[in-house]
Write a protein that binds this DNA or RNA. Structure first.
Lengths: 185, 185
DNA sequence: GTTGCAATGCAACAACAAGTTGCGATAGAA
DNA sequence: TTCTATCGCAACTTGTTGTTGCATTGCAAC
């Protein structure tokens, strides 16, 4: 039999949050089983409930901790190159188990529902800078609403992944990039 | 006290399915409570489980029965008019409680997940006829993939409603229509 | 009208997961 | 070594899905 760990403090925190992410990934939903998280974290269920009032708060904290990773702003040198990197990132996110759980769930809690808008807002702001730089380089004229253009480029990718249920080809991604580039003339 | 109904046959079926839809609407999720359906249908929980092996099958049957309503194909006389009607229909669906439950839930069962692709496929086919008619009228030249154009028009509406969390203005709808019309030249 | 059967109601039950509680055990610092 | 906050643990409550056995009742055939 394995010994109970009885570890404490920050290590336990990190283990719990990482375990929660793992469970979301392996189950593909935000409605995870707390017992499973406790098992993966090597921690008793009570310890989790001493830190988080309920499951939704645990999930929220886990996702927020995970989202601390800085949103990368591509810099491939050209507008097309930057947009391509964005579009590929969106595809891999939307196809991933964690991404699908976060982005296609109608969450039970308002806090979790709030997560989606802020998630995209952050990324739209980052992606819009790619357009700003293209303008500075003289590749195109400044658009009225850069973030809207990004939104219109990303929407078909998300839609196809979550609704139409067709896998997303490179050609489909290229179409979205082309449409944005065309809109900038 | 109210008397137990003891009604039978098709009436009971209809009551159960309509009650299920009501509960989905009032709860905004596909994870409805069977007891609540029984209450609304004026039927014992056992009666429901005698017809449907489990909750997911009940939800599936309720949605399929509801979806029997024919998908209307607009005929406003002009391409723009038809597209506008489509786009308004999509908005009202995506904003409705039933629509949100169906289209933004990561369902528990594969059958319910299958529902989304067929839902959209049906509507894409219907909407594509609007483009066909426009071609016949000589309003535009025949596109390579009409359904793809519809998909690209609808995607931003769905995306904004379910992800960005911003309410969808008439102007936003008009932009989507304009983009499709522009793509047909 | 009477009879018989299938459909329904009903209450109790099992299984499972969220969340709680009281107490005993232990790590880590004083 | 001692003290205390943290952790493990087992047992519990609550809510929901799904099941079961039996009593009731609607309805059709006779």
């Amino acid at each position: 039999m394995t010994e109970p760990s009885h570890r404490r403090g920050k290590v336990v925190d990190d283990n719990i949050l990482r375990a929660a992410i793992s469970v979301i990934e392996e189950s593909g939903t935000l409605l995870i089983k707390v017992d499973r998280v406790a098992e993966l974290a090597g921690v008793n269920k009570t310890t989790i409930y001493r830190r988080f009032p309920n499951r939704d708060d645990l999930v929220l904290a886990a996702i927020l901790a995970q989202a601390e990773t800085v949103v990368p702003i591509p810099d491939a040198g050209s507008l097309r190159g930057d947009l391509w990197e964005i579009v590929v990132m969106v595809r891999s996110t939307v196809m991933s188990s964690l991404g699908r759980a976060l982005l296609s769930a109608s969450a039970a809690s308002p806090d979790l529902d709030q997560l989606r808008p802020t998630y995209w807002q952050t990324r739209f702001e980052a992606a819009a800078k790619v357009i700003d730089r293209a303008v500075e380089r003289g590749e195109c004229s400044p658009p009225a609403d850069p973030q809207l253009l990004i939104e219109l480029m990303v929407a078909p990718i998300h839609f196809r992944a979550t609704q139409v249920g067709v896998d997303i080809s490179d050609e489909f991604l290229a179409v979205q990039v082309d449409r944005l580039v065309a809109a900038l003339r």
